[in-house]
Nucleic acid binder design. Structure first.
Lengths: 247, 247
DNA sequence: CGCCGAGTTGAAGCCTTTCAACGCTGGTGG
DNA sequence: CCACCAGCGTTGAAAGGCTTCAACTCGGCG
C-alpha cells in the first residue's frame, strides 16, 4: 500500500474530505520507478499523461537546433509534471530523472471527472499551475538579468529552500546535479560554472565537500540576488467548498 | 453593451452554452482603460484581482536589487493577467500598458463559484495556465541558450504570430516596444538590441520603416531559432461536459 | 526654442565562451 | 588483478559577444 502522490501534494495545502481522498487515491494509474538519467518522456512525443513525483528529483529540458540544452525546471516530491498534456498533444520537453525516483502516472482523461466532481481540488490544481508560472518568471529574471555568480547563488538558494521542506532547518544539502547540468539550467558553460562555484567558495559564501554544499552566508547571497522564497504556500480561501460537505 | 473579455477568450477554444455565457458575461467586475506607460498593478502590491485584456498590449516585468528590469511576458487581447493572484497575496511583478488598453477586472473570489458551477470553464482555465507555462519555458530556452540575433528573431516571430491571430495572414506589424523594452525582454542592452536589429536588416531577414517591421525571410529565421509556434490551440477533448447540458 | 526620449554609432573593456589539457573515480573487460 | 575507458571536475590561455560609456541625431511637445 502506498499513498497517492497527488494526495500528498494536495494535503500540503488543504484538509481533504473522505470523498476527495478516495478520488485522489484512485487517480494514480500506474507507478513508475526511474534511475538517474532515465528518461520519462521525450520532447516531441505524443502523451496524454500527467505525472506526480512521489520520490526523487527530475528535470525538464528542451533542445535547440544547434543541440544546446536548456533545463527549464526541476521537479521534486509532490510536484506535478507534464501538466502541459492537458493543453497540448505533444511534449514540449524531455523529463529526465536525476535521482532514484518513484513517479505516479495520471491520464489526462481522468481530469474531466476531477473537475466535474471535485471543484475544490480543481481549483487547487489551477492555483498550483499559476504558482508554477511565477517560479518560471523568477528563473527568467535570474537568467536574463544577472551574472553567473548571482544566477548560481539563486539556484543554490532555491535548492536549499526545497530541501528544507523535507529535511527541516538546515544549511547544507547534496547537490544532485553535475556542473554540466547546472550550466544547462543557468544558461552558462560547465567551465564557467566550475569557476563561479569556486569563486563563491573563495568568497566564503559557500563551502563544498564533493557534491555536498553548505551555505555559509545566506544573508549576503539573498541580498545580492534579491532571492524571494515563495515557499510553496498557496492561497486557498477562494476555493469552493468540497462537494461532499457543501452548505 | 460590450462583450466580456473572458467570454471572447473562451470562445476561441469552446462553443459555450447559454449558462456559461451568462456566467462569463457577469464575471467582469469593472472595466479599466489604460494609456501607454500606465501601470495596472505594481510589484509587491496586495491584489485579489485577475485581469482580462480586452484590447491593447501590456507586459509584466520584475525588478532586481540593482534596478535592472526583466520583462517576463506580454499580454494581448484575450489573455488572462495576474492569474497568480489566485495563488499568492502579493503581486510578483508589475503590469504596464504598452498601447491603449481596455482591461476587465475579475475578483479572485468569484472563481470559487466558477469552479463549482462550471467545471468545463474551470478546466479550460487550468489548460490555459498550463499553456502559459510552456510559453515561459520557450522564452527561458531562448534567453538562456541563444545569442542576441536568435533571441530577437524569436521575439519578432512570436509577435508576428500573435498579430496574425487578429490581422490574418501578414508578414509585417508595428512593433509596440521601444528598443529599451525589447532589451529588457531579451536580457540584453538597448545598444546591443539596436545593433542586432540592424544586423538582421543588413542580412535581409527583416526590413524596418520606423516602428514597422516586415519579416522578409521567415523560413531562415525559423530554421535558425528552432521557433515553434504553439499557435494558441488548446486541447479540449478531456474537459467535462457543461453542467447545463449534462447527460 | 529648448528639452526629453528614442534611436544610432564608435571605442574600450569585461564577462563568458571556446579550446585544450590533465587528474580523478568508478565501471568494464581482458 | 590491472589496464582501459568514460564522465566529471579542474585549470590555463586566447577569443568573442555583449556591455559600458559617451556622443550625436531626430522628432514631438511644452
Amino acid at each position: 500500500m502506498y499513498r497517492s502522490g497527488l494526495r500528498t501534494r494536495f494535503e500540503r495545502h488543504l484538509t481533504l474530505t473522505a470523498g476527495e481522498i478516495a478520488t485522489l487515491e484512485g487517480a494514480d494509474h500506474r507507478q513508475l520507478r526511474l534511475q538517474p538519467g532515465d528518461v520519462l518522456l521525450t520532447e516531441g512525443t505524443a502523451s496524454a499523461m500527467v505525472y506526480v513525483v512521489h520520490k526523487g528529483w527530475l528535470h525538464m529540458s528542451t533542445r535547440l537546433p544547434g543541440g544546446a540544452r536548456q533545463i527549464v525546471r526541476f521537479h521534486a516530491a509532490g510536484d506535478l509534471m507534464a501538466t502541459w498534456s492537458i493543453a497540448l498533444p505533444h511534449s514540449p520537453g524531455t523529463l529526465t530523472a536525476i535521482l532514484d525516483c518513484v513517479v505516479a502516472e495520471v491520464p489526462t482523461a481522468d481530469f474531466g471527472a476531477l473537475f466535474a466532481d471535485h471543484p475544490r481540488l480543481a481549483g487547487l490544481l489551477c492555483a498550483i499551475a499559476a504558482s508554477d508560472n511565477i517560479a518560471m518568471a523568477d528563473r527568467l529574471t535570474s537568467i536574463g538579468r544577472t551574472g553567473a555568480s548571482d544566477r548560481l547563488s539563486t539556484l543554490l538558494l532555491t535548492f536549499l529552500s526545497r530541501v528544507r521542506m523535507t529535511d527541516g532547518p538546515t544549511d547544507a544539502f547534496d547537490m544532485p546535479l553535475t556542473q554540466g547540468d547546472i550550466a544547462d539550467a543557468l544558461g552558462l558553460t560547465k567551465v564557467h560554472v566550475n569557476r563561479t562555484l569556486r569563486g563563491l567558495e573563495r568568497d566564503g559564501l559557500i563551502a563544498r565537500d564533493g557534491r555536498r554544499i553548505r551555505i555559509l552566508d545566506e544573508t549576503t547571497m539573498i541580498r545580492n540576488t534579491g532571492f524571494i522564497d515563495r515557499c510553496g504556500t498557496i492561497q486557498t480561501d477562494w476555493l469552493p467548498p468540497p462537494r461532499d460537505q457543501e452548505g
